[in-house]
């Protein structure tokens, strides 16, 4: 009896036992189901290489289409992966570009897309980004072309996955 009283203080147990008919209604079931599905996706991140690659591509903005990228954006991912970026005027091989790179908490391209862009000159330069997670790495190289009037054009030059050896 006492154990029942204690367990019913747990939010999920209380909702299950004392939430009445609401839990069987469509929108409420859908809400729980969505939370469970998104949680499952997150939990699969370290387990399935395909999920790791998908989330890394989300971070580097290299998902195949915007409409496949956008739904992933609602999945919380604060401070995920070991991320680095480097802005350089040198056209380097992507694997050799991270000497002196700067760490960033998430989404390494944000250091260009989110930051102030004034004063970067008129010559083309490169944005190198790297994310690491449990032995896997995603490296990307983006060419940035400043235009007259302060505009910038970004084009993806290279994307490379590095996976752990056998």
């Amino acid at each position: 009896m006492e154990r029942d009283a204690w367990s019913e203080k747990i939010a999920l147990v209380a909702a299950w036992r004392r939430g009445g008919a609401e839990g069987r209604r469509g929108p409420t079931r859908l809400f729980y189901g969505t939370l469970a599905l998104v949680s499952l996706w997150i939990l699969l991140l370290p387990l399935l290489p395909g999920v790791t690659a998908t989330v890394m591509r989300r971070f580097h903005l290299t998902t195949v289409s915007y409409w496949r990228w956008l739904p992933q954006q609602v999945v919380p991912a604060m401070y995920s992966f070991g991320n680095e970026y480097r802005l350089s005027s040198e056209d380097l091989a992507v694997g050799e570009a991270f000497s002196g790179a700067t760490w960033v908490n998430h989404y390494p391209p944000r250091l260009f897309t989110f930051a102030r862009r004034r004063g970067l000159g008129s010559e083309a330069f490169y944005l190198y980004c790297r994310s690491r997670y449990r032995g896997r790495e995603l490296l990307t190289k983006t060419r940035v072309q400043p235009e007259a009037g302060g505009e910038f054009r970004m084009s993806l030059v290279e994307e490379r996955f590095v996976t752990p050896g056998p």
């Binding site: 290299t62 505009e151 910038f152 084009s155």
Partner: peptide, 10 residues
């Protein structure tokens, strides 16, 4: 003032 006018994803 400094928009990104071309990007492969957005």
């Amino acid at each position: 003032e400094t928009p990104i006018t071309e990007h492969w994803l957005f």
